[in-house]
Each structure stands twice: as structure tokens, then as C-alpha cells.
């Protein structure tokens, strides 16, 4: 009897806490979805019911914003950044773990230290570099500085510690070259790591704001984050339109997350075999 009351009490606490957390994380999404259906004035007044302005908001968003171009820009930047970051940083993480050298740890620590420098401090020198290379207002300038990601290198090195060295030895015995081992053994085995890293890099690149803002100069090169920022900061922002934009901007990340989540689990199962 006593245990069952204690059980009920703990269940109430657990579900109460979980419910509260779920509410805190889901509420902004609900608010965003409801906001997209209401007029700006209703949103300011705090209306929390579905409204009738969805079609108007969508139409206004599409007249204010060159949607295909903006999404194409965002997609281009994100895809290049993701593919290149994964390629370069996973190679680096693999190298750091597999190959021994006298300076390995010192170099690795120096690289990790760069994680502590805020981007705002690197911005102006980076901007001058891009200016000297004539890359201002190009998507190359947006992608380049993100490729060598210290965090992703760190992430791959940590995960490589779990990569069985027997596999590598066996591959060597079979006569595979170093690049073949990486490409045919390491990459498939580390699928789960790649999936998780993909999500992280994709989200960072898609949501990247400060650097594209600094380096992109024209309406033709702007990414979706910049467009939404400028919509939201008008003297009288049309919040309904901003909500439509935010929903559209969230969709790709959401899709990637759900899609990769399955990959992630499959990858985990695959690597056990």
C-alpha cells in the first residue's frame, strides 16, 4: 500500500515534470503555427486560436520575398558547407586518432583552444581576408570559414576511439591502401557518427546568421535567415508574414532531423554487426 502511494506520487512528479518540459519546447512551435494563420494585430493582442489570415500571410510573404531564390541560396550554402565540413573534418578526426606523432596532442589541444575564441573576434580579420581574395558577396566566402570545424574534428576523433583497430589491421593485411581503408572501411562503419555530425553541421549551416550577414551584400545572395531578420525588424513588422517565413525556414531542418534520425538508429545497429 505504502509503495503504491509512493509510486503514484513519483509518477505524478515525473509526468508533471516531463509534461512541463514538453510544453516549454512545443509551445513556441504551436504559437508559430497559430501565428501564421492570424493577422499581425491579432498576434500582438495575444490571440491563441487559429485565424483566417493564413492565405493572406502566405501571399504577402511570397510577394515580399523572392522565395525560390532565397531558398536556393540557403540550400547551396548549406549543402556545400555540410559535405565539405564532413569530408575535411572527419579525415582530420581520423588522422588525429590513428596516426601517432610527437606533436599530435599539442596540435590537437591548440586546435581545441580555437573553440574558445568567439566568432565576433575573428570576424573583422576574416572579412579583410575575404576582401583581399575578392570573395565578398559570394557564397564561397560563406562556406570557406566553416569547413575546418574544430568541434566536428573533436567529435570524429572521440568517435574514432571506438573504431576497432582490428578492422584496420585486417584491411592492411588484405592490401588496402590508407585512403581505401578510410573510404571503404571507416566511412561505412562510422555511419552513425556521420549521421549525427550531418545533423549538427546541417543545422548550424542552415541557421548561420552573423557571418553570412557580414559577408553577403546584395538581395540576390541573401539566405533565408537574413531575409527573416529583415522582415522581423521593420518598424511595424507583419508578424503573420514573419511566422510564415519562420515555418518555411524550419521545415528543411525538421525534415533532415526526422529523416536522419532513422538513419542514425540503423547506423547504430549496423555498426554492431
Amino acid at each position: 500500500m505504502r509503495t503504491s502511494t509512493a509510486n503514484i506520487a513519483s509518477a505524478i512528479l515525473t509526468y508533471g515534470f516531463v509534461g512541463l518540459m514538453a510544453f516549454l519546447s512545443v509551445f513556441p512551435f504551436i504559437w508559430m503555427a497559430l501565428g501564421a494563420t492570424n493577422s499581425s494585430i491579432d498576434i500582438i493582442k495575444g490571440r491563441l486560436a487559429p485565424g483566417e489570415a493564413l492565405a493572406t500571410n502566405i501571399a504577402n510573404f511570397f510577394t515580399l520575398v523572392n522565395v525560390p531564390l532565397v531558398f536556393w541560396n540557403s540550400a547551396k550554402v548549406t549543402i556545400f558547407a555540410t559535405v565539405l565540413t564532413l569530408a575535411v573534418s572527419s579525415l582530420a578526426g581520423y588522422g588525429f586518432e590513428i596516426f601517432r606523432s610527437r606533436h599530435r596532442e599539442r596540435l590537437y589541444r591548440a586546435m581545441l583552444l580555437t573553440l574558445m575564441i568567439p566568432f565576433a573576434a575573428l570576424m573583422i580579420p576574416l572579412f579583410i581576408m575575404m576582401g583581399k581574395m575578392g570573395l565578398i558577396n559570394t557564397h564561397i566566402a560563406v562556406v570557406l570559414p566553416t569547413i575546418g570545424s574544430a568541434f566536428i574534428v573533436f567529435y570524429f576523433r572521440q568517435s574514432t576511439k571506438a573504431f576497432p583497430s582490428e578492422l584496420r589491421d585486417a584491411a592492411k593485411v588484405d592490401g588496402l591502401k590508407e585512403w581505401q581503408i578510410f573510404l571503404y572501411i571507416y566511412v561505412p562503419v562510422m555511419r552513425s557518427t556521420y549521421a549525427a555530425a550531418f545533423i549538427i553541421v546541417f543545422m548550424t549551416a542552415w541557421n548561420n546568421y552573423l557571418w553570412p550577414l557580414i559577408v553577403l551584400q546584395s538581395n540576390e545572395t541573401k539566405t533565408i535567415t537574413l531575409v527573416i531578420s529583415s522582415l522581423a525588424s521593420a518598424y511595424y513588422p507583419d508578424y503573420g508574414v514573419v511566422m510564415v517565413g519562420t515555418i518555411l525556414a524550419t521545415l528543411p531542418t525538421l525534415a533532415v532531423f526526422f529523416f536522419m534520425q532513422r538513419q542514425f538508429v540503423q547506423g547504430m545497429l549496423g555498426s554492431v554487426k
Binding site: 550577414l213 551584400q217 546584395s218 538581395n219 537574413l226 531578420s229 529583415s230 522581423a232 525588424s233
Partner: peptide
């Protein structure tokens, strides 16, 4: 060529 960014931007 009128380019719009947020004011703080």
C-alpha cells in the same frame, strides 16, 4: 540597387 537588412544588421 536597394538592399534591405535589419536595422541592427
Amino acid at each position: 540597387n536597394v538592399v534591405d537588412f535589419a536595422k541592427t544588421d
